[in-house]
Simulated scan of single mutants.
Amino acid sequence: MPSRAALSALSEAAAVTAGVSLRRVQDGKRIITLATIGFVVVVLMQILFDAGLQPYGFENWRPILYAYVLWGIALGFGLVRMRGAAGHRALFVLPAVLFTVAMVIFPTFFGLYIAFTDWNLSSFEGRRFSGLKNLYALFADPYYRNALANMVFYVLMVLPQYAIAFGLALLLNADIRARKFFRVAFLLPFMLSPVAVSWMIGKSLMEYRFGPVAKLMREIGWDNPAFFTSPWIAKFSIAVMDAWVWIPFIMIMLLAGLQALPKELSEAAKVDGASKWQAFWQITFPLMLPVSVTAIVLRIIFQLKLADIVINVTSGGPGGATDTVSSFIFREYRDRSNVGYGTMLAEFYLIIIIIFITLLLHWVSRWMRKMH
């Protein structure tokens, strides 16, 4: 394996070959190195100052933002000095990279730092480093474990949503009357905000005293149609409202996939005497697997963020039966003002999501290769 010095020599040789002098390459490296060292020193100094480990620092993190901008400018100037025309092309990508670092990577790591602090907005003591205290509290929190268990139920509910959406997509792909009207009508729930759905359905239609759905249930024979007092009925009611919003999303993806299928295959199946059911299972469904897998994975990702409907309709009740991780974290911030512990919950959940989605995509990729 080539040493670092050898790799540096190779890059310098490549730069010289590209028409950039060796002096310019060295100048570019010095600019990037000095700017990076300066930026890291300023950030570390501010972190130690906030932690109370040294007396020098800034009152807020605004100077760090200015230092980051200056570091980005120095990085761009150094790339131009080092690579010439290639450096000019890199300048088009550099702003997007810096923006991603500032808006995604930095907040994630800063949140990780906050997760190991004792920071309650109702306390006058401010933020203090607490080590693994929040992590120990997380593992001992039965309400958080309950929210994680509820997420298993909500994620599994994606499968019935997919089945219903596939049926609707097949219906809207068929030659029926008013097909364009039904396509728009079935998309209407997806156009609504989950907050609006919460009040329109959960707080109005399903209201146990005067709601139309409750009155209909009484007519059928349900004496006390309280949708949000029994744990399993409440959880199922939340899942139904969430499905009503998101089934059109899956449906429109599957409908696009169905319209892209060659019609010659279905016509050939008819000629061979295959029934509609056989044509679906042996031709349509296998060909729709890539679109189906994409729709299900995207829907699972959205489902893992479920919060709006729960917060507005049940606030996690009764007794945490409908709680999601996001709604539980929201209440930890809003009701208890516990920023440090709430951030630990969020960071831990982010790690779970990353592991779960990575394993899911790996399993789906292997399964798709076997199918082909």
Score class of each variant (00 low, 15 high):
residue 28 G to Q: 00
residue 60 N to S: 15
residue 242 D to F: 05
residue 104 V to S: 11
residue 184 V to E: 11
residue 354 I to C: 13
residue 172 L to K: 09
residue 106 F to T: 10
residue 360 L to C: 07
residue 296 I to R: 04
residue 296 I to F: 06
residue 93 V to L: 15
residue 261 L to W: 04
residue 308 D to V: 00
residue 201 I to P: 00
residue 37 I to Y: 08
residue 26 Q to D: 13
residue 58 F to E: 07
residue 71 W to D: 07
residue 84 G to Q: 08
residue 86 A to I: 07
residue 207 E to M: 05
residue 142 P to N: 08
residue 251 M to N: 01
residue 351 I to K: 05
residue 83 R to F: 14
residue 189 P to E: 09
residue 301 I to G: 10
residue 297 V to T: 14
residue 18 A to K: 06
residue 266 S to L: 12
residue 52 G to T: 12
residue 357 I to M: 13
residue 303 Q to S: 14
residue 207 E to C: 06
residue 310 V to E: 01
residue 163 A to V: 15
residue 258 L to R: 01
residue 85 A to I: 09
residue 335 D to N: 14
residue 189 P to Y: 01
residue 104 V to Q: 10
residue 67 A to W: 01
residue 237 S to A: 15
residue 66 Y to T: 14
residue 246 W to G: 01
residue 211 G to R: 02
residue 209 R to F: 10
residue 163 A to H: 03
residue 201 I to C: 05
residue 19 G to R: 09
residue 282 Q to Y: 14
residue 190 F to I: 04
residue 342 G to R: 01
residue 213 V to S: 04
residue 344 M to C: 15
residue 314 T to D: 05
residue 229 T to Q: 08
residue 35 A to F: 00
residue 83 R to D: 11
residue 313 V to T: 05
residue 365 S to H: 10
residue 277 W to T: 08
residue 169 A to S: 08
residue 288 M to W: 02
residue 201 I to A: 10
residue 268 A to N: 13
residue 95 P to S: 12
residue 330 F to E: 02
residue 213 V to G: 03
residue 95 P to Y: 00
residue 140 A to T: 08
residue 368 M to H: 10
residue 38 G to W: 00
residue 58 F to N: 07
residue 189 P to H: 04
residue 321 A to T: 03
residue 346 A to N: 11
residue 113 Y to S: 09
residue 327 S to G: 04
residue 166 F to M: 15
residue 332 E to I: 00
residue 238 I to V: 09
residue 117 T to D: 05
residue 82 M to D: 04
residue 128 R to A: 09
residue 244 W to E: 01
residue 326 S to C: 06
residue 119 W to M: 07
residue 371 M to A: 15
residue 348 F to T: 15
residue 273 G to Y: 05
residue 189 P to L: 04
residue 154 Y to P: 01
residue 211 G to Q: 04
residue 218 R to C: 04
residue 82 M to V: 02
residue 125 E to I: 07
residue 363 W to D: 10
residue 55 P to R: 03
residue 69 V to M: 13
residue 268 A to R: 11
residue 278 Q to R: 12
residue 28 G to A: 07
residue 85 A to T: 11
residue 288 M to N: 02
residue 194 P to D: 06
residue 273 G to V: 03
residue 62 R to D: 11
residue 290 P to I: 11
residue 12 E to Y: 00
residue 294 T to M: 13
residue 178 A to Q: 11
residue 22 L to R: 14
residue 236 F to Y: 14
residue 28 G to D: 02
residue 124 F to Q: 12
residue 190 F to N: 13
residue 321 A to M: 02
residue 341 Y to N: 02
residue 169 A to G: 02
residue 5 A to N: 04
residue 92 F to I: 12
residue 174 A to L: 12
residue 161 Q to C: 08
residue 92 F to V: 12
residue 227 F to P: 01
residue 109 F to L: 14
residue 136 Y to K: 12
residue 292 S to W: 03
residue 246 W to I: 02
residue 88 H to D: 09
residue 238 I to D: 00
residue 324 T to L: 03
residue 207 E to N: 12
residue 103 M to E: 12
residue 155 V to R: 05
residue 153 F to G: 05
residue 346 A to W: 07
residue 356 F to N: 01
residue 80 V to C: 03
residue 79 L to Y: 02
residue 366 R to L: 13
residue 85 A to Q: 13
residue 317 G to R: 03
residue 362 H to M: 13
residue 120 N to I: 07
residue 79 L to I: 06
